[in-house]
């Protein structure tokens, strides 16, 4: 099967006063049609930059895409002309942002923002447009869509706003939806509702989703496969169940050990020592080596090649974790 989205050796660099900050260093992954791929990692590991690069939203200057290819349905997005790019954005690829209040224009009503999106991609009659807006709003589980069209973002609760943001992202039935931390700004009960909504949308529309989150708990519930990012590199990629039961990269293992719900009662979660390296001064070799419990001499030299453990499971490590059989982990990891 040909992937719907293929990111190949993507490099994103920010030219700052302190020198070049390498935010993304050769990220590669592929998303199959109908599948949900999760990008997971700590803050500053390049998740958001990767997502924004796909739609070429990196603020430039100072940012620039320094190399690589982004193939959407076989077409290189990085070579798309402005008019073609505008067609891809919104109509073919929808994007959901982290902060629902700031992702909505405070001075325009929900209806204006939704219909404006529809007009931007082909002229539809006013009544058809209104109908489509109402349908989309009820599809994301919002009550009383006609009244909602007149409402302003500040009149809605956080959960409703995020539903509106999701409605805007899926209004044009894009073939790929990129969700950048869609639940991070919400409180826990609303998070659960939004996750349920995503599950429904996935089931109903066979939606292809690129989900970005630092929250492993969200990933477990939504992602089919997960790619773990660290300092702008994909360090491990595996189906969700495999990743949780048999992580091979020490960083993935550390990330899973830091989830409170995966620990026995009374036992504290294990933090990974140290902090994410400064993207302006990345360590040589494997960027994780200063924090790695399994570090070898070779790790300081060059970045390790991806090792393929089985066709769907790859990790970039010279000294991967041994396989442990702990099947319970998958179930316990749900609410991390």
């Amino acid at each position: 099967m040909t992937p719907l989205l293929e990111v190949d050796n993507l490099h994103v660099v920010f030219d700052t006063d302190r020198g070049a900050v390498r935010a993304v260093n050769g990220v590669s992954f592929a998303v199959q049609p109908g599948e949900t791929l999760g990008l997971v990692g700590e803050s500053g590991c390049g998740k958001t930059m990767t997502a924004q690069a796909i739609l070429r939203l990196i603020p430039s200057p100072p940012g620039r895409i320094a190399g690589g290819r982004i193939l959407f349905d076989g077409e290189d997005v990085l070579l798309a002309r402005p008019e073609r790019l505008r067609r891809l954005r919104g109509a073919a690829i929808g994007m959901i942002f982290q902060e629902p209040l700031s992702a909505l224009n405070p001075v325009l009503s929900v209806g204006t923002q939704l219909t404006e999106l529809l007009t931007a991609h082909g002229s539809v009659s006013r009544t058809a447009m209104r109908q489509q807006a109402l349908e989309t709003l009820s599809e994301v589980g919002l009550p009383d869509p006609p009244a909602l069209l007149r409402a302003y973002p500040h009149q809605l609760s956080g959960g409703m706003r995020q539903r509106v943001v999701i409605a805007m992202a899926i209004a044009l039935r894009p073939r790929l939806v990129i969700a950048d931390e869609p639940t991070t700004a919400l409180d826990v009960t609303v998070q659960a509702q939004i996750i349920t909504l995503f599950k429904q949308l996935k089931a109903r529309h066979h939606m292809t989703l690129l989900l970005i989150s630092h929250d492993v708990g969200v990933m477990v519930q939504l992602a089919d496969r997960i790619a773990v990012l660290y300092a702008g590199h994909v360090v491990e990629e595996a189906p969700t169940a495999t990743l949780f039961t048999a992580p091979r990269h020490p960083y993935t293992r550390g990330l899973l050990a830091a989830i409170p719900a995966r620990r026995a009662p009374g036992e504290l979660p294990e933090a990974i020592p140290g902090a994410v390296p400064d993207a302006a001064q990345l360590p040589s070799g494997c960027p994780f080596h200063p924090r790695c419990p399994r570090v070898l001499e070779v790790c300081r030299g060059t970045f390790p090649e991806m090792t393929v453990f089985d066709p769907a499971h790859r990790a970039a490590c010279y000294n991967p974790e041994p396989i442990v059989n702990d099947v319970n982990d998958v179930k316990d990891g749900k609410d991390g």
Binding site: R89, E99, M168
Partner: peptide
């Protein structure tokens, strides 16, 4: 720099729009 402007770009709006 506000997210709703980036969101509008992500939704394929033109610069003038």
């Amino acid at each position: 720099e506000r997210e709703f402007i980036v969101a509008a770009r992500a939704a394929g709006r033109s610069h003038v729009g």
